[in-house]
Amino acid sequence: MPGGGPEMDDYMETLKDEEDALWENVECNRHMLSRYINPAKLTPYLRQCKVIDEQDEDEVLNAPMLPSKINRAGRLLDILHTKGQRGYVVFLESLEFYYPELYKLVTGKEPTRRFSTIVVEEGHEGLTHFLMNEVIKLQQQMKAKDLQRCELLARLRQLEDEKKQMTLTRVELLTFQERYYKMKEERDSYNDELVKVKDDNYNLAMRYAQLSEEKNMAVMRSRDLQLEIDQLKHRLNKMEEECKLERNQSLKLKNDIENRPKKEQVLELERENEMLKTKNQELQSIIQAGKRSLPDSDKAILDILEHDRKEALEDRQELVNRIYNLQEEARQAEELRDKYLEEKEDLELKCSTLGKDCEMYKHRMNTVMLQLEEVERERDQAFHSRDEAQTQYSQCLIEKDKYRKQIRELEEKNDEMRIEMVRREACIVNLESKLRRLSKDSNNLDQSLPRNLPVTIISQDFGDASPRTNGQEADDSSTSEESPEDSKYFLPYHPPQRRMNLKGIQLQRAKS
């Protein structure tokens, strides 16, 4: 015994090295194993092979420090690593049964499904019991997946119906949107047309105001020219009257000059006056001389005659003075006559000038009245044309509004008919989907599995289990394997941990 101590140590070291070499393959693929292994699927088989106990299973599945599946799978690998070579062998058998691809990844061999460990530990009855539990578990999982698949199909059909409904609603909204954009385009076109009409109206108003201003300026210029013409006519008439007055005065002077006595007659009258003065002096001298030589009687007679002569001279002087006064009065009367005649001529000139001015103003008033009548006639014609244009424009607008209203009513009726057609199509689609759903539900009910399987069917299934373990590994792997896509769409199922009653199965096998 003492001599065998070193050999035992060498043997233990060799086993430990082999164990480390075995687990080295697992550690190399630890990331892939932790990512894809579900500990809840492996722990029943590991407990059946007595590699882990209930406490280890509870620690792996329910520990609060292991929230994710990767953490739980890593903890399970750590626990199996502590179990040595047996933990490695049982772990590979569980991978061979549940995850053939991972088994091939770790060992590089094809899975054979021999279950040597569980046969050694529990015997064939334990293997049968384990396989029966796994089959029931798989059936329950398949039923749950079928239910989930039916629910998802129903949800899918519902979503398809909602999608069709949303599509129809979208078509309806597109119809309304198209109608909205069309009405918006019509409104924009009408606004552009309105702005264009306003611009045209403004341009016409500006043109009309400009023409009116030009016409008023032309009328004012015409009036100024007419006033200048009238003033020139007035000056012409005044000059004609002055010329006529000057002509009359010149004719009067000419007549006075023609009626003036001649120079010879004046000289002859002056000679006669001198001769008479000479004779008068001679007679006076004779009379003076006679007075001195005459007697007293003759002197008395001469005195009487002288007195008579003096009286006659006085009378004559009075007559001469009277004649002079009369001549002066006649001259003054002639001057007054000439003055009055001049005033008369001036008044006649003024009267004729005023008459011509009156005629001029009368003509001017007639011209202004004619212009006013023409302006009123043009204004009435413009008003009439404007009223006709406004009436025609309003009539066109009324007809346009009428046609637009008819078009809008027809478009609304068309839209309502399209919407009604879309709604009826939606109703038809809904009815078809309901009919299809009812038909599929009836087919699913016919094809669904019963909840409680008979014992004979279970025994028959387990009677055929042994050949399947040898020759149909691919079928078992397809039913027991969970793909990543299934984990996305289906909830994980945790079967209840219970042991099955095998009395009925044993009785059935005894009868057979």
Rank of each mutant, 00 (worst) to 15 (best):
T107R: 00
K143N: 13
E7P: 10
Y45G: 02
Q141D: 08
E7C: 12
D9H: 11
S34K: 02
Y36V: 14
D58V: 05
I79V: 06
E18Y: 11
R114G: 10
L127N: 08
E54A: 06
R35A: 04
P39F: 04
Q48D: 04
A21K: 14
F91A: 04
K109A: 03
K50Y: 07
S116I: 04
E7W: 11
H81K: 08
C49D: 05
E122S: 06
G126Y: 13
R86M: 14
T43F: 03
S68G: 00
L61A: 00
C49A: 15
K137T: 14
G123E: 15
L66A: 00
G5Y: 14
Q139R: 10
G4T: 11
I52C: 03
P39I: 06
V135Y: 14
S68N: 04
P111Y: 06
V135M: 04
G126C: 14
E96I: 03
L76M: 09
Q48Y: 02
M8A: 12
H124G: 15
K41A: 02
V60H: 03
E121L: 05
P6I: 14
Q140D: 09
P39N: 02
F115S: 14
M132F: 15
A21Q: 09
S94T: 12
K50L: 08
T117E: 15
L80H: 04
K137G: 09
E19D: 13
M65T: 12
E13Q: 10
E122L: 04
K145H: 09
H129Y: 13
E101R: 00
L46T: 02
W23P: 06
P44H: 03
D78F: 04
V51T: 06
K145L: 11
V90Y: 11
G126V: 09
G5E: 12
Q139P: 06
N25L: 06
F130T: 15
H81I: 07
E54N: 05
E13S: 10
N25Y: 09
N38P: 01
V119G: 08
K83A: 08
V90D: 04
G126I: 13
K41V: 06
E122P: 14
N71Y: 03
E18C: 11
E7Y: 13
R86E: 14
G74V: 06
P67L: 10
H31M: 12
Y88M: 12
L33N: 00
N25A: 12
E93R: 11
I70N: 04
E122H: 07
H129W: 15
R75P: 01
V119C: 07
V135I: 09
N62K: 00
I52D: 03
A21L: 10
V135H: 12
Y45W: 06
S94Q: 02
L95H: 14
Y11D: 09
K137F: 15
M8N: 14
T117P: 15
N62E: 08
D10Q: 13
L66S: 00
L76Y: 02
M132N: 10
V119F: 15
H124D: 15
Y45I: 09
G5I: 10
L80E: 03
D78T: 03
E18S: 11
Q140N: 12
K145A: 10
K69M: 04
P6G: 13
P6V: 13
D17T: 13
E7H: 11
L138V: 14
R35F: 04
L22D: 12
C28F: 02
L138I: 06
V135E: 01
K83D: 04
G123W: 15
G108V: 08
G123A: 15
Y103S: 08
G123V: 14
L15W: 12
L105R: 11
Y98V: 08
N62V: 01
E134Q: 07
A73T: 10
T14I: 09
E110M: 13
G84E: 06
H129D: 06
Q139K: 13
M8R: 13
L131W: 09
L76Q: 02
L77N: 01
N71T: 09
L46C: 04
V89A: 13
R30F: 00
L66F: 04
C28V: 10
L15H: 12
K50T: 13
C28P: 01
R72I: 00
F97Y: 12
L76I: 03
L80A: 03
N29Q: 07
N25W: 10
F91L: 07
W23T: 07
F97I: 08
F91C: 00
F130E: 08
G4L: 13
E13K: 13
M65I: 05
P39D: 00
K69V: 03
R47E: 02
R114V: 15
F115C: 08
E125K: 05
L77D: 03
L77V: 07
D78R: 02
I136P: 07
Y11I: 11
I52L: 10
E122C: 04
D78A: 02
H124K: 09
D9S: 10
M65A: 08
A21P: 12
N29K: 09
N29H: 11
D58Q: 00
A63R: 00
D10Y: 10
T14S: 11
E57C: 06
I118Q: 10
V60M: 04
R114T: 14
N62R: 03
A144R: 09
T43H: 02
L33H: 00
M32F: 10
T112D: 15
C28Y: 07
Y98L: 14
P67D: 03
I52Q: 05
R47V: 01
N71L: 05
Q141A: 13
H31Y: 08
K137V: 09
L80C: 05
K50W: 04
S34Y: 01
I37L: 09
Q48C: 05
K83G: 04
V89W: 07
T112G: 15
L138N: 12
D20G: 11
D58K: 03
M32N: 08
H129G: 09
A144P: 10
I70V: 14
V60G: 00
E59A: 00
I79D: 02
S116W: 04
S68W: 02
V90R: 15
S34E: 01
M32H: 09
N25C: 10
R30S: 03
Y36W: 14
I118R: 10
I37P: 01
D10R: 13
E101L: 00
R47S: 02
R47K: 01
S94M: 03
N62C: 15
Y45C: 04
Y88E: 04
P67V: 07
L33G: 00
L131I: 09
L138D: 06
M65L: 09
E122I: 04
G4D: 09
K83P: 02
D17G: 12
E110K: 08
T107N: 03
T107F: 00
G5K: 13
V89M: 14
A40Q: 03
A144I: 11
C49T: 13
R47G: 02
L15T: 10
H31G: 05
Y103D: 03
E110F: 08
L102I: 03
Q55M: 12
D53I: 02
Q139F: 08
L15G: 13
H81F: 05
R47T: 03
Q141K: 11
M12E: 10
V51I: 13
Q48L: 04
S68M: 13
E57S: 03
Y99T: 10
A21C: 08
N133H: 15
S116L: 06
G84A: 05
K16Y: 13
F130Y: 14
F130A: 14
L77A: 03
E125R: 08
N38R: 04
L42Y: 00
K16L: 11
T117R: 13
H81S: 07
K83W: 02
K83L: 04
D17H: 11
N133L: 08
L61S: 03
H129P: 13
K41N: 02
Y98N: 15
D20N: 12
I70G: 00
Q55K: 03
Y11G: 11
P64D: 00
E59D: 01
D9G: 13
Q85M: 07
V120M: 06
W23I: 07
A21V: 10
D56W: 03
M32C: 09
T107A: 10
K104R: 10
